[in-house]
Amino acid sequence: MRRSMLFIPAANPKQVMFAATMGADTIIFDLEDAVSPMEKDSARILLRNLLKTMDYSKIEICVRVNSLDSPFWQEDLEEIVPLAPGLIMTPKIESPADVEVFDKAISEIEEKSGLEKGSIGLVPLIETAKGIENSYLVATASPRVKAMLLGGEDYTANLQCKRTKEGNEIDYARKRIVNAARAAGVEIYDTPFTDAHDDFGIIDDAAYAKSLGFTGKSAISPRHVDAINEAFSPSQADVDYAYDVRDALAEGKEKGLGVVALRGKMIDKPVEIRALQTIAIAKELGIERSPKEDD
């Protein structure tokens, strides 16, 4: 279950050490924007040592390496891939060719390190207008691609417009990338809400992202993690309704009914799929069905 993905600067020992306690489902250890060019070497070594030592077994590990147009990405992979993080996030991905370069380099290191080929997933970071237009092709470029992330800051810089809290300028990209990801069968994560001190803005922003179909949302502040987890978890009412749908379908099948209704509404295939998805997520999160009133 991956609802929240929290960026942690890889150059900060304290934050890396305590990353597992922040409540996020996935931690993205950042070797790119959060690390100055002068400190790329030391951050890489620090992250490698701490990944080897600390217990991160309760969270998923993702490492954002540097982009293909930098001189750092190959050394990042050499240092990090042998440690078998669950995911590698690759910035500024614009085309299937970009994915293929990372795919090939990771495969070579996996082989050298005795890791199963393809065991490390890729999360292309889509943060340019070209990347958005090519996002379906990116998502289907390799079976290694497990998810994509929208990067709103670089994207709006590329669009030559201002990034606002309301986010009208990224609305097209959000909708386009969700559709592309769903068409490709990969997960899709929303850009961070960048005002770390706005505890209410994040609630609205996460709810909007959820309403568009995003799987979850990234964060640059630990303060936003709880709001994201809540927005992307099913409510108790959702869970109860999902179980009611499942029960109604089972009862209808037993009675040999062709059409099953619940509370006056027909349960069609999409309703059934959504209900089963909700039950699966609820089980993973430990959300149980409310006791029935007559229980």
């Binding site: 020992p13 050490m17 070497d41 030391s42 070594i45 620090l46 490698r48 040592n49 701490l50 080897k52 030592t53 600390m54």
Partner: peptide
Amino acid sequence: GAIDPVLRARMEAVIKR
């Protein structure tokens, strides 16, 4: 207050530099 893997990472980086 650096723990052992942090101290060793800093040593490795400074030696290489």
